[in-house]
Amino acid sequence: MSDYKELKEIKSKIEEGFLAYCYKIFKVSKPEVSLVNGMRIKTASMNKAGVAKFAKQIKDWEEEIKKYRDEFAPLFLLDNFDEDDDDCYEYEDVKEELLAKRLWTISSALASKDKALEKYKTAFWGTAPRQLFTTIKIILSQTNNYMYDYAPLIKLNSVNKIEQLKYDFLIAEDMLLTGVIGLGIRSEILHRLFPSHFPIMTRKSLWGMHYLTAGEDEFITDEFYENMQRTEHNWNYDYPRFAFYNLFLSKLLESFFKEFNISFNNQLRFGYANLFLNEISTIHNDDIRILTEWK
């Protein structure tokens, strides 16, 4: 992975960009803070109403993350994939309902009019339902093992190396399905079920990270299609590395919340990070639209 920059370099860029985006997103800032552009935040922005609004925003975020998690958990129960059980899902149910409709990363790709996604649609529909069923079952089973065996031993607050996340189990070949269940799609499953331990790696979160790090290129990539070109999110970005940066970001968010006496729920840590990155991406929507147009 020689194309990736040093961890400390990206971390320091995240740190540098963080407060400016906090101000843009939460409309509050720590007192006596200088923004990148040299502007100093006045104490007026720390007024009670502003902080209350910020607290409400975080509460809404938490509800959104929990809602997803609680809706997801029963649908992705491993018991539903137990073929010895009478109530086991049919292979087609998993493909056409669970994945094609309930998983946002897949449903949006299947509904997209982007011609570059035709290849994905063909790959998805060209995969037998049983294959998808099996891959999802393996992902769930291995992730449950991780949460049971490793997660309790990992002190996420003191992680300072990617390896400490113990994500090795994700590398196994049968944990992905070439061209159909990729890193981004799998990350949605992991994240929705366990926002405490897995971030979601989507178009928006990668673009968000690109802008948060003052335009780091490793989060984006050039795509080519029928003599046309565009810049898009790097959907093939190394997931454990992305998780590491998300963890770092979540720690920054935690300390930022503390400044305002807003509690930080560790069970939702990667959810906060995701929504923060989504907001950054939204701020830059116009630029992203131009960059992602086929030219």
Binding site: Y91, E92, A100, K121, W125, P129
Partner: peptide
């Protein structure tokens, strides 16, 4: 796949896109 005598439904997208091209069934 389950080797049963059954009734089932298939998504037509699956049938249309598996037309023998691009290595599909």
């Amino acid at each position: 796949p389950k080797r049963k005598v059954i009734s089932k439904e298939m998504n037509f997208e699956e049938v249309m896109r598996n037309d023998g091209s691009w290595g599909t069934n």
